[in-house]
Amino acid sequence: MGSKQRAYTPEFREGAVRIVIETGRPIPEVAEELGIHSGTLHSWVSRRRRNGMSVGVSLLRQGARELIDAIPR
């Protein structure tokens, strides 16, 4: 029997990673809020950081909710 693998749009992945990086919120917390497995989000964030695209953590906590609501699913 095959497993159910969900496909996420590049925009959803990027938005989820940005929430973690820009707000500094814990990956498990963001993952739960978005309804995805924390291991999945962790791999996306790790890949982004490994590729040197992370500029650092900023204090954009105020816009976090707007980012979450704007992510297409």
Rank of each mutant, 00 (worst) to 15 (best):
E14Q: 04
D69L: 09
V55D: 13
T23A: 08
A70H: 12
E32K: 12
I68G: 05
L59V: 06
T23E: 10
R50P: 01
A31W: 00
E33R: 10
K4G: 04
Q5R: 03
L34R: 01
H42Q: 11
L67T: 05
E32L: 07
E11D: 12
R13E: 06
L60I: 10
E66F: 05
A31T: 00
Y8A: 04
S58K: 14
F12Y: 12
E14C: 00
S38C: 05
P26W: 00
V57D: 09
D69F: 02
R48G: 08
H42R: 14
A7W: 01
R50G: 11
R48M: 13
A7P: 00
G56Q: 12
A64L: 09
H37M: 03
S54G: 06
G2D: 12
E22T: 11
S54F: 05
R13D: 03
E66S: 12
R47Q: 15
R73G: 05
G35Q: 01
V55C: 10
V30Q: 08
G35M: 00
T40F: 02
D69E: 10
R48N: 14
P10C: 10
G52N: 15
I27C: 04
Y8I: 02
M53L: 15
Y8W: 07
V30S: 08
I68H: 08
R25V: 04
E22S: 14
R13H: 02
Q62V: 10
T9M: 02
R50T: 13
T9R: 06
S46W: 15
G2P: 15
E66T: 09
V30R: 09
P28E: 03
A16Y: 03
R49D: 04
R73M: 04
T9L: 06
E32S: 10
R18P: 06
V30D: 09
W44R: 09
R18N: 15
